[in-house]
Structures are given as C-alpha cells and as structure tokens.
Simulated assay, not measured.
Amino acid sequence: MRTNPTGRQLRLGTELRKLRERAGLTATEAGQLLGSKQTFISNIEAGRAGVSAERVRTLACHYDCSDTALVEAIAAMTGDRKRGWWEEYREILPGALLDLAEVEHHAVRLRTAITVHIPGLLQTTEHARETFRLVVPDLSPPDIEHRVSFRIKRQAVLFRDAPAPYVAVIHEAALRMQFGGPTIARAQLRHLLEMSERDHITLKVLPFAAGGFPGSGQSIFYSSGPVPQLDTVHLDQSHGPVFLDAEAQLGKYRVLLDRMEAKALPPEKARDLIHSITQEL
C-alpha cells in the first residue's frame, strides 16, 4: 500500500473515479463487479494501491465507457514504474514540484503564458537563482541551490529526442524585469532568442501596446496529455503549485491561452522586440 502516491498515480485514480461516477456506480458496486471489496476500489482511486492496465480496461468495460482512446491513455498511465529523475528530490523539495516535473515529462504538448516572469523551462541558471532569492519566507542558500538545480533539470524535456511542442507567451513586462541586474538580464534575453530558434519551441510576446488581454495577471502552464481529458493546468501560486484537471477548468484555460496567443506578437516580431530590449540594456 502506498503512503505517498505521486501526482500521476493520484490522477490515474481520479480518472477511474470519474468513469465510475459517470456510470452511476458506488465504490461498493464497482468492487462487487470485480469480485472485490469497496476498499479495493477506494484505494485505487485514492492512488494508494496500484492497478494493472488490464484491470483498468476491465473497470472501463464495467463502467460502459466506449471512449477507447481515453481508456487506453488511462491504461498507459499504469505502465511507467521506473523512478523518474525527480525522485532524488523527494525528501528535499515540496511534492508538488516533483509532480510538475512528472507532468512535463509525460506531456505531448506544453503551453505557458506568464506576465512578470520568464517561464521556468526557459530560464538561465543565474536568472533562476535570482528569482529564488526573492522567495518569501527566505530560502537558505542550500535550498536555493536545490531549487535551481531542479529547475534546470526540468528543462531536459526541451532537449530530449522528439521533444513535445512548447508554446510560450511572455509579456513585455517580464522581458524588462532585470532580475539580478543588466548583465544577468541581458544573458537571459539572449538565451530566449537562442531557444526560440528551435523548431519545437514557439515564443510569442504580448507587448505593452497590446493593452488589456484575457488572463492578465495569471501565470498559466498547460500540459496536454495523450487525450484532452488527461490535460493538466498548473497555476503557480506563492504558497506553491496548484493543479487543475476538471473538464470545465481545462476548457476555460484552453480558451484563455488561445486568446492570449492570438493577441501576442508572432515569433519573428517577438524576436525583434526581445533583441531591441537586449540592445537597450
């Protein structure tokens, strides 16, 4: 029995619970269909107990779920039993940060929109260090370095073979925030320009001239799963990451990101603006 399930294990259980509830079955009734007790179903849905891909398919059949793509995507979530690199930080960093790295690792597409910060996946080491120095309450020097190394290791998703497409919308305010001073800021902007040249990365900028826009003031990270029902929204809050996966919430943030991307400068003009700001430093 697991005592500390990962975010992915919890999500697997959540999706199975959604299927059961749509079928109008209680956990007791679902257990009876499998010849098991209610506690067996409850433990699976809470992420406390593992479940095989074949058992997922059996449950989906009992739940009269005809969405084959969804069932197979959920079944695939049972197969990755290797420890991810993020597990080495299990006793060092908050579990929600590890869940974020796990979500990124399994995503088929990544989208983000951010107002006053550079997205973590696009930060330089020096820029990341300066942002963590501003965390409240203050982090100790070792804690800062742990968070910096974790953030940089997360960026491996952008460099692996066949990386997921990544779309980032950054507000001009974030480009002009000089974390650590002009030298670090200049290096950060040059790094953005270099990363924007990669085929799988689309970098857009919302200029001040664009005025107001939907989602202003929010930091949104959207991770697409193999099917839309398994997408995840990550909101970065002062108290830590918040994850959303309800269908209504996913739909809302898809629309927000679509509208923000539509209002942002396209990649070529975005690079021109970044280059111009770099020259001013």
Rank of each mutant, 00 (worst) to 15 (best):
T3W: 06
T3G: 08
P5F: 03
L10K: 14
L12C: 05
G13R: 01
G13F: 02
R17D: 04
A27Q: 15
E29V: 11
G31H: 04
G35N: 08
Q38M: 10
Q38S: 13
Q38I: 04
I41L: 03
S42A: 14
N43F: 07
I44Q: 02
I44C: 03
E45D: 01
E45N: 01
E45M: 01
G47L: 00
E54T: 05
C61F: 15
H62G: 04
D64K: 15
C65N: 11
A69Q: 13
A76E: 07
M77D: 00
T78N: 02
D80T: 07
R83M: 05
W85G: 02
W86E: 01
Y89E: 12
Y89V: 08
R90S: 15
E91G: 10
E91W: 12
L93S: 11
G95M: 12
L98Q: 07
D99W: 01
A101E: 00
A101P: 00
H105L: 05
H106Y: 10
A107M: 00
I114T: 11
P119V: 10
G120L: 04
L122H: 04
T125C: 10
H127I: 06
R129H: 11
R129Q: 12
R133T: 07
L139D: 10
P141S: 05
E145I: 05
F150Q: 11
F150C: 09
K153H: 13
R154V: 03
Q155G: 08
A156E: 15
V157I: 12
L158H: 06
L158Y: 06
R160V: 02
R160W: 03
P163Q: 12
V167P: 03
A168R: 00
V169I: 10
I170Y: 05
E172Y: 07
L175A: 06
L175Y: 06
M177H: 09
P182A: 06
P182F: 05
I184Y: 03
R190C: 14
H191E: 13
H191N: 14
L192N: 08
E194C: 13
S196V: 04
E197Q: 15
T202Q: 12
K204G: 02
K204I: 01
V205E: 04
P207M: 09
A209C: 05
G212M: 13
S216I: 14
I220T: 02
S223E: 05
P228R: 07
L230M: 02
D231L: 02
V233A: 01
H234N: 10
H239A: 15
V242C: 07
F243G: 00
L244K: 01
E247M: 13
Q249G: 10
L250Q: 01
G251M: 01
R254Y: 09
R254T: 13
V255P: 04
L257H: 10
E261A: 15
K263I: 11
K269T: 06
K269F: 04
K269S: 12
A270R: 03
R271D: 08
L273G: 06
H275V: 13
E280A: 11
L281N: 10
L281F: 08
L281H: 11
